[in-house]
């Protein structure tokens, strides 16, 4: 299943070009989190970023026949969210500075800075996806430790066990997280494989 297929991304792009809604959905699942995250890091506004990401997919679907391939689709999605986010920040700062002669330029981003932000978004999503695939009890434990910030002693009390046991469980959970993460970059082709299989 994790065997790399030679035509994965290109095939997905081709199906979208031909108006395949399933393929479009699969592209959506693949990029939606990264796009929203990318927008939030630029604007600090979750709702705006969800709208921006949605608009990006909307425009991509409308222009699908002009898209030359997968890399272009990816670049297009991020560029729409980037444009809109920069405009959003600019507009917000202009509203703040109402009626003065201002030159609210918005933040300018160099090529390399945008690339870093895209890498950041996609790496974060890869980590998120790996956590999502953890067995429930591991995920639960990590959630309590990292998100709810419960201490080892409190957790041990709550679960009726010893702090040492919690520490071992945590180490196990992290170990399996690392293992999943090592497969994470292969996920792409895996999804496509699934998809090709079910689409036929």
């Amino acid at each position: 299943m994790t065997k790399q297929l030679p035509y994965s991304d290109a095939e997905l792009a081709e199906l979208i070009r031909n108006g395949d809604a399933e393929a479009f959905r699969s592209l959506f699942e693949r990029f939606i989190r990264a796009l929203v995250y990318f927008g939030v890091k630029l604007t600090g506004d979750q709702e705006e970023s969800e709208d921006a990401a949605s608009e990006a997919f909307q425009k991509l679907w409308q222009k699908r026949e002009d898209m030359r391939g997968y890399p272009e689709m990816r670049a297009y999605l991020f560029s729409i969210v980037h444009n809109r986010s920069v405009n959003f920040v600019k507009r917000r700062s202009m509203v703040k500075a109402a009626h003065q002669t201002i030159q609210a330029e918005g933040e300018t981003h160099s090529d390399s800075s945008i690339t870093t932000r895209i890498i950041q978004a996609e790496t974060m999503v890869a980590i998120h996806n790996a956590i999502d695939k953890l067995p429930l009890h591991h995920r639960d434990l990590l959630h309590k430790i990292y998100i709810e910030e419960q201490s080892t002693t409190d957790l041990a009390k709550m679960l009726g066990t010893t702090p040492a046991h919690i520490r071992t469980s945590k180490a196990r959970a992290l170990a399996s997280l690392r293992e999943i993460l090592s497969d994470e970059t292969l996920l792409r082709s895996c999804i496509v494989f699934f998809f090709l299989f079910s689409a036929k």
């Binding site: 959905r25 959506f28 699942e29 939606i32 989190r33 929203v36 995250y37 939030v40 979750q46 969800e50 990401a53 949605s54 974060m124 999503v125 980590i127 998120h128 956590i131 998100i147």
Partner: peptide, 15 residues
């Protein structure tokens, strides 16, 4: 903190 941002995204609603 970064992962929390991603967790808050409701992909079904957006879809």
């Amino acid at each position: 903190e970064e992962l929390k941002i991603i967790q808050n995204i409701s992909t079904d609603t957006i879809w």
